[in-house]
Design a protein around this nucleic acid. Structure first.
Length: 480
RNA sequence: GGCCUUAUCGUCUAACGGUUAGGACGGAGCCCUCUCAAGGCUCAAAUACGGGUUCGAUUCCCGUUAAGGCUACCA
């Protein structure tokens, strides 16, 4: 067989849907794995749904996810243009060819007439093929109407009593009876093609070998098969992917949560985590590994291991996965992510070496770049309040005395390394006749205002002697 | 309604007809510990139902049920 060529063909609705991301990912992975070509094609044949800037946004989001296409808008390629609204003449010519070969016909029904037909059909509960009345119109009359500019569509002439079957990589052989299929509109009265025509024509012209798309397309695939047949073209291999689902198992939709990739991006999820997560919604490597980089997925992915049943998009697990990737991220890249978060919080003049220390101490305790700043504010600003619960639990009447004695020892301490600080704290506790914890907890509260966070000695070392002393004194004043 | 698809713990899933039905997320508990995390250990939790085929079905076939998708001059 010729070399693999696959495409991701979204319609530009303004944002990239996570289901779309998964479809794009599987296409991308399949192309990479098989040394093929990954194409981006924009299906903007519905003028009423035109959204300004949607294409740019789509490309930007795909790039963010790390899915680079080999051919597509802005990138070029031998099979362009890759935006369907720029290929109108091609579709018109092919629709005309289908009419000429007797496999399609012009129809002039108005919206009202169609509505009435649909109602009659609903009553009878079988396709009545009333569209076919257009076939009764004499050829001369058809020509006259067309040249007179009467609104017309081109419909595919579905044969009667035929079984249309095709092989699906994930589902095996699928069969449909042609009697259940309507004469699909191929070319709309505004001159734009419908998905069905544009999709088949472009897939053929662009040399697509594998059509990897969502399961919602399964019922219209027989129409596509018929089109390939009428054009005399080779039929590509199909792989219909299981749907991504809402928690109630309906098709993943806006109504029940976030579906835009951008939204997850804004919420602080990393592209690595989101990609890893959606990769596992419908595919698995066959063993028990779950954490993958894009590069690893490129080596592992096969369509044969794609499942058949829909998968609920479970944010809890995405959260976990995000954390896993976060922990594995190199410190340098965390630094890159942290700098803007710090700046956004209005904190300036902090050196990278200090940020690196913060990362080292907080990495195991946070899940997103922004958390370094939000939960670790005490690394940058003195606490302005003290957690009430912690105060109640750790700040006893005798605490201030203990801290004052420890404070004196801190002042005398020359070196400010974690081990030295620890010795001082333990010695202070011993001389006060209490356990180390009796000092550690109020110290943390004084320094951070909260009762959670990194080990105290590491924390104090990073904050620095001056800051520690100042904060302990403030706490003594504030809390007595 | 019609057509099509699907069916293993709550969720994501593993198990070329033979396993005490495995793992992960989430949940519960224990350990570790200066807190919070992390980590380690343990527990609860599933083959939708009914028929076949077979020495033996989660696995193959049929039916039922349920869920979903499609049923546009939207993709």
């Amino acid at each position: 067989m010729s070399t693999v060529r696959v495409r991701f063909a979204p319609s530009p609705t303004g944002y990239l849907h996570v289901g779309g991301l998964r479809t794009a990912l599987y296409n991308y992975l399949f192309a990479r794995r098989s040394g093929g070509t990954f194409i981006l094609r924009v299906e903007d044949t519905d003028r009423s749904r035109f959204v300004e800037g949607a294409v740019e946004n789509l490309i930007r989001t795909l790039e963010w996810a790390g899915l680079r296409f080999d051919e597509g808008p802005g990138k070029g390629g031998a099979s362009g243009p890759y935006i369907q609204s720029e290929r109108l003449e091609i579709y018109r010519a092919h629709a005309a060819a289908l009419v000429a070969s007797g496999n399609a016909y012009y129809a002039f029904d108005t919206a009202e007439e169609l509505e009435a037909m649909r109602k009659r059909q609903e009553k009878l509960q079988v396709p009545v093929r009333e569209y076919r009345r257009a076939l009764e119109i004499p050829e001369e009359e058809v020509k006259r109407r067309l040249s007179a500019g009467v609104p017309a569509v081109v419909r595919l002439k579905i044969p009667a009593g035929e079984t249309v079957a095709f092989e699906d990589i994930v589902r095996g052989r699928v069969e449909f009876s042609s009697d259940g299929i309507d004469d699909q509109v191929l070319l709309k009265s505004d001159g734009y093609p419908t998905y069905h025509l544009a999709n088949v024509v472009d897939d053929h012209l662009m040399g697509i070998t594998h059509v990897i798309r969502g399961e919602e397309w399964l019922p219209s695939t027989p129409k596509h098969v018929l089109l390939y047949r009428y054009f005399g073209w080779e039929i590509p291999l199909f792989a219909h992917l299981p749907l991504l689902l809402n928690p109630d198992r309906s098709k993943l939709s806006k109504r029940q949560g976030d579906v835009a990739v951008e939204e997850y991006r804004n919420r602080g999820f990393s592209p690595e985590a989101l990609v890893n997560f959606v990769a596992l919604l419908g595919w698995n490597p066959g063993d028990e590994r779950e954490i993958f980089t894009l590069e690893e997925l490129e080596k592992e992915f096969t369509l044969e291991r794609v499942g058949k049943s829909g998968a609920v998009f479970n944010v809890e697990k995405l959260n976990w996965m995000n954390t896993e990737h976060f922990r594995r991220a190199p410190v340098a890249s965390l630094l890159e992510l942290m700098r803007p978060a710090v700046a956004a919080a209005g904190i300036t003049g902090v050196e990278d070496s200090y940020l690196l220390d913060v990362i080292r101490l907080l990495k195991e305790r946070v899940e997103r770049p922004g958390d370094f700043v939000s939960t670790g504010m005490y690394f940058f600003r003195d606490p302005v309040a003290y957690d009430e619960q912690a105060k109640k639990k750790h700040w006893k009447p005798e605490t201030a005395d203990h801290l004052r004695r420890a404070l004196a020892r801190f002042r005398d301490l020359g070196s400010w390394l974690p081990a030295d600080i620890e010795s001082v704290v333990r010695a202070a506790a011993q001389s006060s006749g209490v356990g180390a914890g009796t000092l550690i907890h109020p110290l943390r509260l004084s320094l951070t205002g909260v009762a959670l966070g990194p080990g105290l000695f590491d924390l104090m070392a990073v904050l620095g002697k001056e800051t520690c002393l100042r904060r302990i004194e403030s706490a003594l004043t504030a809390l007595g």
